[in-house]
Structure formats: C-alpha cells, structure tokens
Design a protein around this nucleic acid. Structure first.
Length: 425
DNA sequence: TCTGGGGTCCTAGGACCC
DNA sequence: TCTGGGGTCCTAGGACCC
C-alpha cells in the first residue's frame, strides 16, 4: 500500500463562489446556469434540498421554482478560475506533491504526514476557508478512487466536519456500503445497467469482483476501478499535467441558424478562440475538425450532425492559416435547409509549437518513428510474434498491448509502453 | 421559444492502399 | 464452389469525467 492521498474538493464550487461576494445569499438556495442559461450546473445545499437536479434544463423547471426564494446566477468562469487558482495556491503550501484534477479538485500526496493525517487535513480545510471563503471537503485513502469515496462520505456525513479518512478495510467497507452505485468514480448509468446484468449492483459487489473477469467482460478502465477499490493504486498522482491532446471551442446558438453566413461567423470566432487557447499552451495543430449539430431534442425535425477533418500541410498555430482550413471544412459539410443549433471547431492532434519550424517538424518526427519501430520489434520479441501488429499508430499499438497483456499500465504513450513492456534498455 | 462546454478513451464500418 | 488479407485513415458515435 502506498502513502495516503487526499482529495480536496470545493463544496458546490460555482455556487460558493457566487455567494462569496454576496453574503446575503448565505443560507438561501443558489443555482448557477450554463451558457445561454441553458442548464443547472451548480447548486448550493439548500438548492439540492429543493430537489433541483444537476444538469436540469432551466426552462423546464423555472415555472416550478419562481415562488421559492431561489437565487439564480448566470455563470462567470473568469471569477471561478481566479478563485480556483487561489485555492490551489494555498494547497500547494501544504504539500508540493499536488495534482490539480479539475477547476475545483486536487489530489495531494500525504507522504510524511501519516502520523497526523487528521490534524493536517483540518488545518488545510480551515486555512482555505479562512483565506478564500470557499468551504472544501477532504477525503483521505490509499488510492484515488477510494479518496473519491472518502470525499463523498465527508460531504454526506454531517458529523464528519468535512473530513473523512478511509485507511482500514473496515472503514472502507462501511463507507462503500453507504454509497450509491453510481456515486463511484467511473461508474455512470450505462455501465451500472450492464453490471446489473451480471448481478453487480452495489459498490461492495464491484470491489469484491475478480479484476481479471471485469477486464475480460468490460474494460481495462473498469478493472482499474476494481483494483483501486481494493486498495491497489493504479492511477498515479500526475503532478505535471501532460500536454493537451486536443482543443475544442463550440457554442450552442440561442436560436436555430440556417444560413451559411451565420455559420461562417460562428466558425470564425470558434477557430480564433481555440487557436488562442492552443497557443497559450504552446501547442500547434496538425488539422482542424469543424462540426455542426441540428437539435437532437427535436426528433421530429430532420437531423444532420456532420463533421469534417482538414489536415494542414504543416502543423500550425497561426489563426489565419487555420481559419482558411476551417472555412473549407464548413463549406464541405454545410447543407441548406437544416436548422443548426450548434457549431464547433476541434483541433484533434496537437504537437509542441517548438517542434514546428517551417515544414521541418515532419522531418524531426522521422527518427522517433524509427525508434518506435525498434521498440515494437522488441515487444514482439518478448511477448511473442504478432503481439503488436504495428503500422504507424501508437494509439492502436497501445490498445493491442493493453488488450493482450493485462499487466500493461494504462497509457497511450508508446514511450511509456517501451519502458513497461520492452526488455530493459 | 428555451436543453452547456471541454476533455479522454474506445469501437465499428467503409474507403483506400499494397 | 468460390470470392485475399493486412494495414491506415476517416467518420460517427458511445461512454465516462468535471
């Protein structure tokens, strides 16, 4: 068993942020809505108590709640981003071994604090609250999946004081027995239905399942969940966030859009936004996908959800060059007569901007390919001929390896595969 | 009339290539 | 009675996460 991990999660984050600058909202039900005020994306405890569900379309429920004391806010992501950064900075002062998992969550290694976990967690929680006003919950356990369980338990249990540690099997069993099945990290509706077919309907059933059976019947992803529930860490703490593999910008229109001119405008803005986001991370794209959607909630209307990928001759981070490709893609897929409600732009395969110099990046890629070929030969030699049928896609090679060798860690990076699967070099 | 946005991984089928 | 096979890339869609 490794050192204990903590998952620190801000309570009802967006709703808490909104409350921060308006203390009058304390004790009142508060919800935050998504873009275009479409769906409910955050709820204070009081709003949850009213029965408002996550993701509920606002227009369907506003009639029902207008007479309640409900406070409704449009989302303000700049504010949430700023507050998130402040919370994370405070957590970093408690341990340098920290992975920012999302805008409102971080995993922390508690190595070295084993003998005073509780006091340490209480101190963290109090400091974040005092300095930012944001309440957080802390879950402590030997694996990330169990830390998620602990965090949820801390939130649910009023006497926990916002902190829950699940270090012994008895504590873990007790916590798991109080959880809904789909409360588990990685188990949502569809998977729960499929698991129910074979009699697995509670968190404890899943923990006590045979990981190898789960992998054969389901996937390596779910197998990791089982192992982690059993206390075996499978998902390491990622302190350095890896480069994004793709970047997307998309928006729903307020009303249906019919003309090419309106779509060109939208695709233009999305391209510019995505390109900015990409440049901020010092990446460049090898292509651009443009996609459109008609209204899927109106099956009575004609449906059309096309997408088109245009490859760039050379990876680029230049908005003008990418825009040219975007508009060409849009021209390919646009069909008049449909009522479009959403448009988006996706840069699907990003490379470091520094590797792009004129058209040299494809050249620079050649030695890497050669190394990859050699690595695959080595893997085939070790595991038997044909283990990896490899042409050019590291993604597919990784998939083969995971399928055929349960022991291979979950990765799509072939360099990693070489280290874990190949002969020592 | 009004149903989010941004990610990751996986699967399947068809076009195309040698 | 038989219709090649192995491979890549693309489109489309499903599942999960926050």
């Amino acid at each position: 068993m490794g050192a204990p991990l903590a998952l620190v999660d801000c309570n009802n984050f967006y709703a808490s942020c909104e409350r921060l600058f308006q203390p009058a909202l304390r004790g009142r039900p508060v919800i935050v809505l998504s873009n275009n005020d479409g769906c409910v994306i955050a709820r204070s405890n009081e709003a949850k108590a009213l029965g408002i569900a996550m993701g509920e379309p606002w227009h369907l429920i506003k009639e029902k709640y207008w007479r309640e004391d409900l406070v409704v806010r449009s989302s303000n992501y700049t504010l949430y981003g700023d507050l998130s950064a402040r919370v994370m900075q405070i957590l970093k002062d408690f341990t340098p071994d920290l992975e920012i998992y999302s805008i409102d969550e971080a995993f922390l290694s508690l190595e070295g604090f084993e003998r005073r976990l509780d006091a340490h967690a209480r101190h963290m929680r109090a400091t974040v609250l005092q300095w930012t006003g944001i309440p957080v919950s802390v879950g402590i356990a030997p694996t990330k999946t169990l830390a998620k369980v602990a965090n949820r338990t801390a939130k649910k249990d009023p006497v926990s004081g916002g902190i829950c540690a699940l270090l012994t099997e008895a504590e873990q069993t007790a916590a798991l027995s109080r959880l809904e099945f789909t409360d588990l990290w990685g188990v949502a509706g569809r998977l729960a239905t499929r698991l129910a077919d074979i009699g697995i309907v509670t968190p404890l059933h899943l923990r006590d399942a045979d990981p190898r059976f789960i992998r054969e019947r389901f996937s390596v992803v779910l197998q990791r969940t089982v192992l982690e529930l059993q206390g075996t860490p499978c998902i390491p703490l990622d302190q350095v966030s890896p480069d994004r593999k793709s970047v997307m910008a998309s928006r729903s229109f307020g009303q249906p859009v019919l003309t090419m001119e309106e779509l060109r405008q939208a695709v233009g803005t999305h391209t510019a936004r995505a390109a900015e986001k990409m440049r901020r991370q010092q990446l460049a794209t090898t292509g651009v996908v443009v996609f459109l959607h008609t209204n899927r909630f109106r099956p009575d209307l004609p449906q059309y959800s096309p997408s088109r990928l245009i490859r760039l001759p050379v990876a680029s981070a230049d908005t003008a060059r990418i825009l040219q490709a975007s508009l060409r893609a849009l021209g390919d897929i646009y069909r008049p007569g449909f009522r479009y409600v959403k448009a988006g732009v996706l840069f699907p395969e990003l490379v470091p901007e520094a590797s792009v110099q004129g058209d040299l990046w494809t050249e620079a890629d050649a030695p890497a390919r050669k190394e990859l070929m050699a690595a695959m030969d080595a893997l085939n030699h070790r595991f038997g001929r044909g283990t990896l049928a490899f042409g050019g896609s590291a993604k597919e090679a990784a998939w083969h390896l995971r399928r055929d060798h349960a022991s291979a860690p979950y990765t799509t990076d072939w360099r990693h595969l070489v280290r874990v699967g190949g002969p020592s070099r």
